[in-house]
């Protein structure tokens, strides 16, 4: 099974293309910043310079190197997205699987919890907590995002689990003596693997956007940059009106490309995991 999935994975153009895009950005974010001997927010060049050989993506109103900001920003964005997305997906899956599979009072309790977190105005809570604790690191930001954005994922996974649970193959696994956690992991989860991945992608994307909003109101990390922060800075200093397209296009395109590539990967994964689609 493993080998076979790999075999089809390597032959799936959508999956390969999506993965390549993500890897390029990831490597750029990890290795790129090593190219510079200055920080992303240092004033190193002339203000408002268009892209040139020296500053590939031009400079900001204040003479900051947009290319350097972009590469550093990628790093921060990936970190927030992955940490926040993984955490939210993990909580959502555990709650969703347990509630959907067990049913009964366990389900009622977990559903109640999910709904409470769901109706909490997450951004306001984040604001208050963030301001009160004065937290200013990317890790803690990701933690808050992760702990508040799981409810809809939990609801979606619960509903899916609920419908899969009553399928006969789950009963058959029970008749084979397989234990509950293993049934969830080996029987139910593979049937929604692409769904789970999609959930992760959406959480990843929303974590990036929430982080950008937090950054914008001054509650983001004080040090460093992120793609969201760049976008919001560009908006704040009227880059659009001043025609500084090189300031907002790279971060915007970066976020779009990352999320878009993840979507394409998802479609590809669907074809790899679903033997029926494979034959078409």
């Amino acid at each position: 099974m493993r080998y076979e999935a790999l075999h089809f994975a390597l032959r799936n153009r959508k999956l390969v293309a999506g993965t390549v895009v993500i890897l390029v950005f990831l490597v750029a974010g990890l290795a790129g910043p090593l190219m510079f001997d200055h920080g992303p927010n240092d004033y190193v060049g002339p203000p408002m310079a268009a892209p040139s050989g020296e500053f590939w993506f031009g400079t900001t109103t204040f003479g900051q190197d947009v290319f350097a900001q972009f590469l550093y920003g990628l790093r921060a964005t990936f970190l927030v997205g992955v940490l926040g997305g993984v955490l939210a997906a993990a909580v959502g899956m555990v709650v969703g699987f347990v509630a959907g599979y067990r049913g009964g009072w366990v389900d009622e309790l977990l559903t109640m919890l999910t709904n409470i977190v769901l109706v909490l105005p997450a951004l306001v809570v984040l604001l208050i907590v963030n301001a009160y604790l004065g937290v200013r690191s990317i890790g803690v930001q990701a933690l808050f995002i992760g702990l508040t954005s799981w409810p809809w994922a939990a609801r979606a996974i619960r509903a899916q689990t609920f419908s899969l649970r009553s399928r006969d193959f789950v009963d058959l696994a029970r008749l084979s003596g397989v234990r509950t956690p293993r049934i969830i992991l080996r029987e139910i989860a593979p049937n929604m693997s692409s769904y789970l991945f999609l959930t992760f992608i959406l959480l990843f994307g929303s974590a990036i956007l929430i982080a950008a909003s937090l950054d914008f109101i001054g509650l983001g990390p004080t040090e460093g940059v992120s793609l969201g922060l760049m976008l919001n800075n560009a908006a704040r200093w009227s880059a659009l009106q001043l025609g500084l397209w090189w300031w907002f296009i790279p971060p915007g395109a970066g976020i779009t490309a990352i999320v878009g590539a993840l979507y394409v990967m998802n479609v590809g994964l669907d074809e790899v995991f679903n033997p029926k689609l494979r034959e078409m």
Binding site: R167, D168, F169, D171, L172, P190, N191, S193, P275
Partner: peptide, 12 residues
């Protein structure tokens, strides 16, 4: 059981 198609996990 009744429905042979539903007794098999379609993924495997």
């Amino acid at each position: 059981f009744q429905d042979p198609f539903s007794c098999y996990n379609p993924v495997f």
